[in-house]
Computed example of a mutant assay.
Amino acid sequence: MSNKLVYVGIAIFTVYFLAPIYILLLLAFNSPKYTIESVYPPLIFKSPTLNNLIFAFTQYDFIHPLLKSLAVATLVGILALIVGIPAGYGLSKLPGKIAYPIIVVLLITNMMPGLVVAIPISAEFIRLGLFDTIPGLAFAQELVTLPLAVFILQGTFSSIPREIEYQAKIDGASTLSYILRVLVPTTSPGIIAAFLISWMFSWDEFTYAIILSPIHPTWPVEIYLNITRGNILAAIAFSLVFTIPVIILTILLQKYLRGEYLTGGIKS
């Protein structure tokens, strides 16, 4: 009986999370008269067509927003590792009663509304020449992704026995050499998890993007602009393509998105 309840629960959650993707596919590949022009649109495919996608990708610019989103997300992931690896390593060396409050302070940024943070940042970025640029947007999004990356990396590094580092030091390795040649290869799954979390957050981030990059928008902002302008078919097509990279990354790299890499456990 208990196993049946588990299966029922899994089925319900599966349907709940896959339903939006199914609706998106209906909107993208069904004729508009059965979807956005219908009062009671059917929940099955009728008159499947590629005309929606062809129309959207031939009539609207999608290459530049796509490339900008890819560039920003990749830069955010790289910066999260460049800063997060030494920060996570340093925190993993501290006792839990010291490391835990530091991580909590880092995560306070995530508790603040993005709009409150983005407006003063945009004024400063205009002065520095970073407004509406890929590095400027990446630096702003790092305020949210970096604490998460440090949280994951600290827990990952804390799981490595101290004896490994002691042995490396005995063999003559410096701290930098130990991190690059021993720690990073050993904890690569956790490092990849931190990169993926940072990348995926940046990929669909909206608040910082619309305030700090309104002239040359990223992909989420472009979808929003098409919706507000009434270009529903374009928004639907862009949303479908926007979802594909996340699905592919999740499927290919799901072995790295495990609980042990995301818990950020802290040793006392």
Rank of each mutant, 00 (worst) to 15 (best):
A138E: 02
L146V: 08
F45K: 08
I134D: 08
G264V: 03
L196H: 00
Y256K: 00
A118I: 11
K169T: 13
I215H: 03
I119L: 14
E142F: 10
L50F: 15
L43E: 11
P42T: 05
E260D: 10
A149V: 06
L148I: 13
K68Q: 15
Y224E: 05
Y224M: 10
A11M: 09
I197W: 01
V105Q: 12
F45L: 15
K169A: 13
V105F: 15
V6Q: 11
P245S: 05
S47W: 03
I44S: 13
P120Q: 04
Y224R: 09
T175D: 13
S198V: 01
G129N: 09
P214L: 07
A28F: 06
L50A: 12
Y40R: 10
T49R: 01
L148D: 06
L25I: 11
G88N: 08
N231T: 04
T207D: 04
T49E: 02
T74A: 12
L143E: 03
F201M: 12
L180M: 12
I126A: 14
G264D: 02
Q254F: 04
G265E: 07
I232D: 04
V182E: 08
L25M: 12
L252D: 00
Y7N: 15
Y60Q: 14
I126F: 15
I82M: 12
L240H: 06
S177Q: 14
L153Y: 02
N52D: 09
P245V: 03
P220C: 09
I251Y: 10
I244L: 10
G172L: 11
F131W: 13
S268L: 12
V116F: 14
G88S: 05
F238K: 09
K255Y: 00
G264K: 02
T186S: 11
L249R: 04
Y224Q: 07
F57R: 03
S213P: 04
L196N: 00
Y16H: 08
Y100W: 15
W219S: 11
R162I: 07
S2G: 14
L66A: 14
I10V: 15
G190D: 05
G90W: 03
V246I: 14
I63V: 15
I160H: 01
P245R: 03
E124M: 15
T187R: 05
P214D: 03
T187L: 02
Y261L: 07
N231R: 10
I211G: 03
F13G: 09
L233P: 00
L130V: 03
V116Q: 12
I98Y: 13
P161M: 03
D61K: 14
I164Y: 06
Y40Q: 11
V8C: 13
A19S: 09
G129S: 09
I44P: 01
F55K: 15
I82H: 08
L240N: 06
